[in-house]
Design a protein around this nucleic acid. Structure first.
Length: 263
DNA sequence: TCCTATGTTGTATG
DNA sequence: ACATACAACATAGG
């Protein structure tokens, strides 16, 4: 489920336990979400305080004490929940962090997510090395154009999913962006005109802003004026033209678009 | 039974 | 070395 704004929504789910002390940690090391297996001592969190949380693209980082960092990626089906202290785990709960008053839960049926623990004075290197946030000044139109050229032979839909340049964009956001920019998802990236690239840049920023405003705070429902509510199954119609939407495979991912509207 | 799923990575190929 | 395409991962639900 989680793209940019959904990831931030899940980050917020743990906030009720902010400031609290970690009493114990329970996890199932054999779950593939723990990539390092037994090499990591999760007991190191015990006694530290849950200090802070961060979100970048599809990644989250939680700070415990002065030097313990928990990195979380939700994969396809990961979720974070905050439960009462006496919570009894259910199937697919892979990590429980029990604090003074709460149980912080990582739940992930398909186990495509990833959890990693780090010990360092400042932010872990992998966190600092992430590409610029799409809503920051460090992401400029020239960065977009340069990347479109470098990935010129791939369809634009597939290129928008590349996290090295577009952190946080996932399948529904890519469709939403291309629909708003009126660009056909199968177009080769290098085929976009200057004007289309400028439009694409604006829509990338707009969709990120809109998603963070509508979805991140409380999983709000996007309005029917977006493509969002119309893209999930066959038979939808374009909110702009009323014409039928089409669902195809692009780069191995289901892609919904409006042939009458996108060029 | 078969197909699909809001993601990433390893591998083969050009 | 770089770019591209796609199978594989694991599980639930329609």
């Amino acid at each position: 489920m989680p793209e940019l704004a959904e990831v931030d929504y899940y980050r917020r789910q743990w906030l009720p336990a902010m400031g609290q002390k970690v009493c114990s940690v329970v996890n199932n090391m054999s779950a593939r979400v723990f990539k390092e297996g037994d090499r990591t001592d999760w007991g190191q969190l015990v006694g530290s305080h849950f200090k802070d949380s961060f979100h970048r693209g599809k990644n989250m980082l939680f700070a415990f004490g002065k030097e313990h960092w928990l990195g979380v990626h939700l994969g396809m089906t990961g979720e974070l929940r905050c439960e009462p202290k006496e919570y009894e785990p259910i199937k697919h709960d892979h990590l429980l962090i029990i604090t003074s008053d709460h149980t912080l839960v990582y739940h992930d049926p398909r186990k495509f997510g990833a959890l990693q623990l780090h010990q360092s004075q400042g932010f872990p290197d992998w966190w600092s090395q992430q590409p610029p946030d799409l809503l920051s000044d460090a992401f400029q139109k020239t960065d977009l154009v340069e990347f479109l050229m470098r990935r010129g032979k791939s369809p634009i839909k597939a290129v928008l999913l590349m996290q090295e340049r577009f952190p946080g964009i996932g399948n529904w956001m890519a469709d939403e962006i291309l629909w708003r920019a009126r660009i056909t998802p199968t177009r080769k990236s290098a085929s976009l005109s200057d004007l289309e690239a400028a439009e694409l840049y604006q829509k990338i920023r707009q969709v990120c802003r809109d998603a963070m405003r509508v979805i991140a705070p409380d999983w709000g429902d996007p309005p029917d004026t977006w493509l969002f509510n119309h893209r999930w199954s066959d038979g939808g119609s374009c909110p702009k033209t009323g014409a039928p939407l089409e669902r195809i495979q692009v780069g191995g991912r289901t892609t919904c678009w409006s042939p009458k509207w996108q060029k």
